[in-house]
Nucleic acid binder design. Structure first.
Length: 200
DNA sequence: ACGATGATGAAC
DNA sequence: TTCATCATCGTA
């Protein structure tokens, strides 16, 4: 099976396109000798300074600076005083946009009790907690060097597997932007296509 | 339905 | 310097 690291070009597009295309791609987390593979099942696009739901709509600040930088870098910030949100910057330099990674799914193999199951991380805060993602990754380039990156592992996607809905928790963005269907959900993923990570 | 919990940005 | 506001989650 091919394992292609998603690089610069993949993220140099509109956040909406990247958000949709990230479904079925894999998020890889390496800490020490342990490597986890997590298939992305839910994303949200925050597209540009005109998007009232985006932090970038209030201009260039210390926090949003990363969004104005190069694509393929992480934008990580604290939400509600306790949850880290993982975003990946998209579009060309100077265009503030990013995609929020909201949920993943991966197969698990627990050798000690000889069971096989599925690990579902179904919320942006749960995901970062499980993958030990925090401010330390902010502004870093997605890469093995950072210990966190994206890969295409050959999962085939078709449009009818994707559900589009308005984004979560953005009512403050006004009637137009809060209603945009910029949230992408992968409805189902065949078991054999689930990525796995080594136990122990 | 609501409280936890702290950074952020805007107002004064 | 103060204040309202959050791209959420777990418990009720």
């Amino acid at each position: 099976m091919g394992k292609k690291i998603l690089s610069h070009e993949f993220f140099t597009r509109s956040a909406v396109d990247v958000a949709e295309d990230l479904l079925g791609k894999c998020l890889i987390r390496k800490i020490g000798k342990k490597t986890g593979v997590y298939t992305i099942t839910e994303t949200e696009a925050y597209e540009g300074p005109y998007d009232k739901a985006s932090h970038a709509s209030r201009g260039r600040t210390a926090r949003t600076e990363v969004m104005f930088g190069p694509p393929g870098h992480f934008y990580v910030y604290l939400c509600y005083g306790m949850h880290w949100m993982l975003n990946i910057v998209t579009g060309p330099i100077g265009h503030p946009a990013a995609v929020l990674i909201r949920a993943t799914r991966s197969s698990t193999v627990n050798i000690s009790i000889r069971t096989r199951g599925v690990l579902i991380l179904d919320g942006p805060g749960k995901l970062t907690k499980a993958l030990k993602i925090d401010k330390g990754l902010n502004a870093l380039c997605a890469s093995p060097k950072a210990g966190l990156w994206f890969e295409d592992r050959g999962i085939k996607m078709s449009k009818n597997q994707i559900k589009k809905t308005p984004r979560i928790g953005v009512s403050y963005a006004g009637p137009v932007w809060s209603k945009k269907k910029y949230r992408f959900i992968l409805k189902k993923l065949p078991k054999e296509e689930l990525s796995s990570f080594p136990a122990g």
